[in-house]
């Protein structure tokens, strides 16, 4: 028993099975990220005086670089598929390898960004003052913070200057935390959205590695089938890129 239309299209729909499957899957992904984006909108509209929506907390040059990386990977992905369609296997191997490399680079940059945030702290004092900076020392009675120095206006390059160490009594602190999800609604949605997106990048990368190495054996027996499979993983990959195209301005720039 063979399931029909795995490689060739069904005449009346003009589609092979996996193409319908992946588009349906992407439709549900639209709703998944749609749910999170609508949460973002909801939280942002509802931001109150205690938690004003922050601007410029993320590293824009790094984010821009990562956007370039992901866009390039999308281009190499579509080229990998086109190479298979033109039956140029060596070229496919190169482009697919580049796609995987880009995915890896993206994840590494993301890890660097996360790590950077985890080492940044924010302190709310009971008198209403709010200080961010690097943690120098943490004793049971007090914190020592190297406070960030903020200049007027918005800056492309992140501000890395620090003021003189400042000791803060724990008794004066209302709440303090590093820049983790629990820090504020902004970081909550930032880490959730980018974390989920990162998982998608990782998943796509694993699938691509499979089609790059063991899965590419299929080329010898049925090159069209391999091309179809790569098209499917490509559709997923472009979708991941597409989500990032929205994530980048929404989280980094606005």
């Amino acid at each position: 028993m063979e399931i029909p239309y795995t490689v060739t299209a069904r005449p009346d729909t003009g589609l092979w099975n996996a193409k319908i499957g992946i588009w349906l899957f992407l439709a549900s992904e639209i709703m998944l990220f749609g749910g999170l984006f609508s949460a973002y909108v909801f939280l942002r509209i509802g931001a109150d005086a205690a938690n004003p929506w922050p601007h410029g907390l993320l590293n824009v040059p790094v984010g821009t670089f990562n956007t370039f990386v992901l866009i390039s990977s999308s281009m190499t992905m579509v080229m990998a598929w086109a190479s298979l369609k033109m039956r140029k296997f060596a070229q496919y191997r190169i482009y697919m390898g580049l796609t995987i490399l880009c995915a890896l680079a993206f994840l590494c940059v993301k890890a660097y960004e996360y790590n950077d945030k985890f080492h940044h702290y924010g302190v709310w004092l009971k008198n209403g003052e709010f200080i961010t900076g690097h943690l120098e020392e943490n004793t049971p009675e007090s914190l020592t913070i190297l406070p960030d120095i903020h200049h007027e206006g918005r800056h492309f390059w992140p501000e890395t200057e620090h003021g003189a160490p400042r000791e803060i009594k724990k008794a004066d602190i209302r709440r303090w935390s590093n820049f983790t999800p629990k820090f504020s609604p902004f970081f909550a949605i930032y880490f959730t959205l980018t974390g989920l997106h990162g998982l998608h990048v990782f998943g796509g990368m694993v699938v691509n590695i499979y089609f790059w190495l063991p899965g590419s054996k299929l080329y010898r027996t049925n090159p069209e089938h391999l091309a179809n499979r790569v098209e499917v993983s490509g559709l997923f990959w472009h979708f991941v890129d597409l989500v990032w195209i929205f994530l980048f301005p929404v989280l980094y720039l606005l």
Binding site: G14, I20, A27, I30, M31, G34, S38, V41, F42, I45
Partner: peptide, 24 residues
């Protein structure tokens, strides 16, 4: 692309817009 796919996406986008606008 084929109309089957367009149909899926039109439905999805309509519902996604509903989700956005009605919660907002």
């Amino acid at each position: 692309e084929r109309w089957t796919i367009y149909r899926f996406l039109i439905i999805t986008v309509v519902f996604a817009i509903g989700l956005f606008s009605l919660t907002a």
